[in-house]
Design a binder for these strands. Structure first.
Length: 429
RNA sequence: GGGUCCGUGUCCGAGUGGCCAAAGGAAACUGGCUGUAAACCAGUCGGCUCAGCCUACGUGGGUUCGAAUCCCUCCGGGCCCA
């Protein structure tokens, strides 16, 4: 893999929020090391909120370092107190195992796990393999002895929980940072891992690790955090219609992922491009200028959506998602021919409706609810009353409107749309 | 173990016997303006066979003509004391 200037790569993209020491990049430039990042295994798929760290590990690998993805089977059973106002529920061991399998597959799209990567070959590790065998006594003596409660209480992630008088923090979650510190120590000693990266909310946990390493081994390890990704108004990034945006095609289709990034705000699109793509500085600057000068063309969003979808799902799916988007949003859907419809049907949410029920006349409401486009008929009635539901781009005026055979388009499709951009294809069988 | 307080819709949070499908805020959805943007304005925001009915204020009982509101059980949580 080609080496490149990691410091320039990260700083120019605005990816460095905090770092433990000034010489970090100098060392990284002169000597290969291992770098690790933890991933929360609370679901069986990663989501767009993990994208930044996935890209960051990839950048390290491109620079010749070995990325270690730690999907914490052990810490996942404990739960990080950071970022939550209340105690989280614990995962069962079986659920956790299932989640780790799902995450494993997705990591492979960003990191090179093949032997061909040489010393930069990526690793996925499960901290249960070293934390589970650790006895309580050794935990207390070898890890806990190096921390004072005073400093632990001072960490932001813990402090914020103290500020809510009606909620507490369990000892379990309080201990989380020690487990994460133990992870870092283990990786330092066994995998030559001298750097941990994470979101800026991980700062306290990361520095707990670097200080443990110093105290136990006398050695030096560093931490690096990335800025928190937000939307233009400062709110949480990564939510969309129907909740989280997943990297698993079964949970969020390539089309939906594409659409998520297509809808990025002008103000954020250039930043997202820097964060989530591997475009050159020239291209990034060019797209930023293009967005400023002609925002309505959405050049940055188009490129962002295409790049990320390609990265996550591959070029073929990305092309299809792009084509589907162009087809659905260019002028009228009515202009689409059967071939175009069939092409997009695999990515746009699709469901089937029986020909017989259609000939009898099925209500638009029932069809849309059955298709999952609407969560209830009440919601559908509201949508229709507010003019938010259309069939083949024709606004539905009547709550009791029926779908009929005459609305089936060439190729056997009926196109439902809720609002401006939620499309659903009904295929007739 | 003792004391005390609390558990309300997606979230936060009012409500302390009827006027409660439950204030207010946030999130979300739809419409309008635009550009599949933001901001802004307007409407919506439990379900249904929709002028009515059903379900819902942690769980299960009870009191009452009537309970989110009162009593008891249990479950979950906070704080203080030991």
């Amino acid at each position: 893999m080609a080496r490149f200037d990691l410091e320039a790569e990260l700083t120019s993209r605005g990816l460095v929020a905090q770092q433990t020491d000034a010489e970090l990049f100098h060392r990284l430039a002169t000597k290969s090391t291992s770098v690790y990042c933890g991933f929360d295994p609370t679901a069986d798929s990663l989501h767009v909120g993990n994208l930044l760290m996935l890209c960051t590990l990839r950048r390290f690998q491109l620079a010749g370092h070995r990325p270690i993805a730690l999907a914490g089977g052990a810490t996942g059973m404990v739960g990080d107190p950071g970022g939550r106002s209340e105690e989280r529920s614990l995962l069962s061991a079986e659920q956790l195992q299932q989640n780790l399998v799902g995450i494993n597959e997705q990591l492979g799209r960003f990191l090179d796990f093949s032997a061909g990567a040489g010393s930069a070959q990526a690793l996925q590790l499960d901290n249960a393999s070293w934390l589970s065998p650790m006895s309580v006594l050794s935990y207390l003596r070898d890890i806990g002895k190096h921390f004072t409660v005073n400093e632990m209480v001072a960490k932001d992630s813990v402090k914020s929980r103290f500020e809510r008088p009606d909620h507490g923090i369990s000892y379990t979650e309080f201990s989380y940072m020690l487990l994460q510190a133990a992870d870092f120590l283990h990786l330092y000693q066994n995998f030559d891992c001298t750097v941990q990266v994470g979101g800026s909310d991980q700062w306290g946990n990361i520095t707990a690790g670097t200080s443990l390493i110093r105290k136990v081994t006398g050695g030096h390890a560093a931490g690096l955090t990335m800025p928190l990704v937000t939307k233009a108004d400062g709110t949480k990034f990564g939510k969309s219609v129907g909740g989280a945006v997943w990297l698993d095609a079964n949970k969020t289709s390539p089309y939906q992922l594409y659409q998520f990034f297509m809808g990025a705000e002008d103000a954020m699109a250039p930043s997202y491009l820097r964060y989530f793509t591997f475009l050159s500085t020239d291209e990034l600057n060019h797209l930023e200028v293009a967005t400023n000068e002609a925002p309505h063309l959405r050049a940055a969003q188009r490129r962002l959506a295409k790049e990320v979808t390609t990265l996550v799902h591959g070029a073929e799916h990305a092309d299809r998602a792009e084509q589907a988007s162009v087809a659905l949003f260019s002028g009228t859907v009515a202009s689409l021919d059967a071939i175009a419809l069939r092409a997009i049907s695999s990515d746009v949410p699709t469901s089937t409706v029986a020909k017989t029920s259609l000939s009898k006349g099925i209500s638009v409401l029932d069809a849309a609810v059955g298709a999952g486009l609407l969560s209830s008929k009440a919601e559908g009635r509201r949508s229709i009353e507010q003019g938010g539901l259309s069939v083949n781009d024709v606004r539905v005026e009547d709550v009791d409107a029926l779908l009929g055979a005459d609305q089936v388009r060439d190729g056997g499709f009926i196109i439902l749309r809720k609002g401006k951009r939620q499309y659903h294809l009904l295929t007739v069988e």
